[in-house]
Every structure is written in structure tokens, then in C-alpha cells.
Design a protein around this nucleic acid. Structure first.
Lengths: 153, 153
DNA sequence: TTTATTCTTGATAATAAATATCAATATCGT
DNA sequence: ACGATATTGATATTTATTATCAAGAATAAA
């Protein structure tokens, strides 16, 4: 099994557990959205609109609201993270692992998004939180600026 | 002159310069909003609604849209920063100095916001950007979790 | 399997934040 | 003071997201 497939399976289990714990139901629509999301958007940052348009191609009966609700569910269950890069639209990203955190550099010219991770920042951050007796649930670091291409001109 | 007053004067100059450079006009409304904002909201994170309601007390003729537009102008001119803590409303904060950056810990229980700054994070961050040939214009770090009070229960 | 309960879905309406419109007014250079 | 241009306030519009609700689907119980 490829690492990607394994990752997907792990998320699936987490999601199923969440469904069971909260006494929700597993449905065909949720399956469809799960597959589309984890097959095609790993490492991407998709808006609800985009995912909906994409899914509509092969599953025209799935409704807009369902995609909204399901992505929210993904977030709540911890298998996706919600991002907001300042254009007013929420973006969703499949998470890679329960522990890995990464951050984003957003080019304000072309919209390109570069991901990065940095251990030192992580540890500083937890240190600061500890100092303030603050229980960290989540965090996000975003750098806005110009990417190398857009800086040239 | 107090440090706070000095700070306000510096921002005023930056704003005036911006106004001049962009061939905009200085108006009574902008003066009013500037004063209200820098007198009462240093270190705070005010929504447009809140600021509007506040200003309406003494200046009932100032319109809602003007407050919106003016805060946007403050942001563009670099004397205020816009924040978004996930409740769907933009928040504005007077900046303290052109160079100082600080970050936020947001308690998801009570909404309390704790500010912090960390040199080490700053330098890591710039290092990462440099490595990616990314020209940093701005950045934000937000930690979500439970503050000490809300963790007790 | 049938029934009962509860959750989910899809279509659409509603909400809420932010922006656009526009006639009247204020500002500023000449 | 005049003329060009920007701003204002009221309101309408846009846009993302959430709520509503009847019909349908999934699970548990009988």
C-alpha cells in the first residue's frame, strides 16, 4: 500500500470513530465527499465552492449544503483543517498526520501558497503557551508577501 | 508628552503622508475616527460594528460605511492591522510601531486574547522566508486553545 | 423483515458581513 | 471664489455561510 493510501485509511478510521462516538450516520454522500477530498486535494487548499463543482461532475445529485456540512464535519472530527487566507472564503485541507503541523506563505500577488514546517518555531510556541498556562489546541502561522517569481518584476 | 501620545502622533504623520501621497483628502470624519480609534483602542481588537456604535455616541452623524472605509484606509496606510479570529468579523488594532510584531493566543472558551512577542520566532520565520526567496510583507501567528482560567473547571 | 427512531439530504430561504451605488456635500489647488 | 475631484451617508447589493423543513435514508429494536 502506498503511503498516500495508508494515510487516507487512517483518516477514514478517525472519521468513522467520530461518527460512531457522536452517534451520527455514515452515508453515501459522506463517502463520496471523503474520497474526492482525500484523493484529489491532499496538500491543496480547496474552497467549498471548488469541491462542490468538482464533485458535481460525477455526482450531480449531491447538494451544495451537504458539501458545506460535510467539510465542517471533517474539521470537527480532526481529519481536515480550515484555513482562511484573507479572501473571505474558507479553505479546507486534508491533514497529513495527527501530529504534523505546517504553516503557509501566501503570495499576495499571484496567490501561490508555499507550505513549510519548522521545529524551532513549534517549540518556541509551546514554550510561550506554557509560560502563560495556555492549553494549546491549535495554531496557525501565515506569512504574507511576494514569492520569488513575483518579486522579480 | 506621554509615550502613548507620541505614538499617536507618529501614526498621525504616517497617515497624513499616505493621504497626501494618494491624493486623498483629510476630513472631519477621518479625524474623528482616527482619534476615537487611537485614544480608546490601543492594544484592543475592535470590530467595525463596535467602533461604529462607540463613535455614534458623540458623533451621531457619522455613517456606518464611513467607519468601514476609514478602517480599511488605516490598514492600507499601515497604521492599523486587520485580524480575524475566526468569528467571521474583521477586527482592527492600532499598530504600536512600524517594526514591532506581536501575536495572539485566543481562548476558544471565553474569547480572551493574550498578546505575546517572541524574538526567536521572528528570526526563524524570516530565515524560512529567505530560504524560499519570499519577500515578507506581513505575518500572523495565532494560537487557539484554553486560557488558564478556562482550563481549571 | 418490519417498524420505529433518529439522522441526513437537497432545495431554498434567511442571515450577516462587507462592498457598491449615487446624489449631495466637503475639500483643496488654482 | 471657482472648479475639479474626493468623500459622505443612506441604502441596495453581493457573497459566504447557516437555518429551515419536508422527504428520504440509515440504524436499532421488535
Amino acid at each position: 500500500m502506498t503511503p498516500v493510501a495508508k494515510r487516507k485509511m487512517e483518516r477514514r478510521k478517525t472519521f468513522n470513530d467520530y461518527i460512531a462516538r457522536k452517534q451520527l450516520k455514515s452515508t453515501k454522500q459522506r463517502d463520496t465527499i471523503f474520497n474526492e477530498f482525500f484523493n484529489n486535494y491532499m496538500g491543496k487548499h480547496v474552497t467549498v465552492e471548488e469541491l462542490y463543482e468538482d464533485i458535481k461532475q460525477n455526482h450531480p445529485s449531491i447538494g451544495f449544503a451537504t458539501v458545506y456540512r460535510t467539510l465542517k464535519l471533517f474539521k470537527e472530527s480532526g481529519i481536515a483543517s480550515e484555513r482562511n487566507f484573507g479572501d473571505g472564503k474558507a479553505r479546507y485541507e486534508p491533514i497529513r498526520s495527527e501530529t504534523e503541523h505546517h504553516h503557509h506563505m501566501i503570495c499576495t500577488e499571484c496567490g501561490q501558497i508555499v507550505e513549510f514546517a519548522n521545529m524551532q518555531i513549534e517549540s518556541c510556541l509551546h514554550q510561550v503557551a506554557k509560560l502563560n498556562e495556555f492549553g494549546v489546541a491549535n495554531y496557525k502561522l501565515e506569512i504574507y508577501g511576494k514569492c520569488s517569481k513575483c518579486s522579480e518584476g
